[in-house]
């Protein structure tokens, strides 16, 4: 029963969103060597505490969000658009 405050739609139940994955991954360029991709795709930290993760507001504005959530308490400390320019667009 997590609530996620979508920057565009407001606070909504997590059932409107779908979980993406680890938001801390920096994806290699497409022509990067295989080892870099293996690391980005398969290696994950098992974090106890605040974790950065992506969620998509799939039944709302469809925005991809970067969410900081505690894996212990589910407390969400930050929600922002993954796309760097989107926040500015919303603010205007």
């Amino acid at each position: 029963m997590i609530l996620i405050k979508c920057p565009y739609c407001g606070e909504r139940d997590h059932s409107e969103f779908s979980y993406g994955g680890d938001a801390s991954i920096v994806y290699p360029s497409l022509d990067a060597p295989q080892e870099e991709w293996v690391k980005a795709i398969f290696f994950r930290e098992n974090i106890k505490g605040i974790q950065k993760e992506t969620w998509q507001h799939i039944n709302g504005c469809r925005m991809w969000l970067e969410v900081e959530r505690s894996t212990i308490t589910h407390e969400i400390t930050s929600v922002k658009p993954c796309h760097k320019n989107l926040q500015k667009v919303i603010d205007n």
């Binding site: 469809r62 925005m63 991809w64």
Partner: peptide, 12 residues
């Protein structure tokens, strides 16, 4: 959803 992720998250 994957295309949206690529455009919003990886290739802004």
């Amino acid at each position: 959803a994957f295309l949206e992720e690529l455009l919003q998250v990886r290739w802004p």
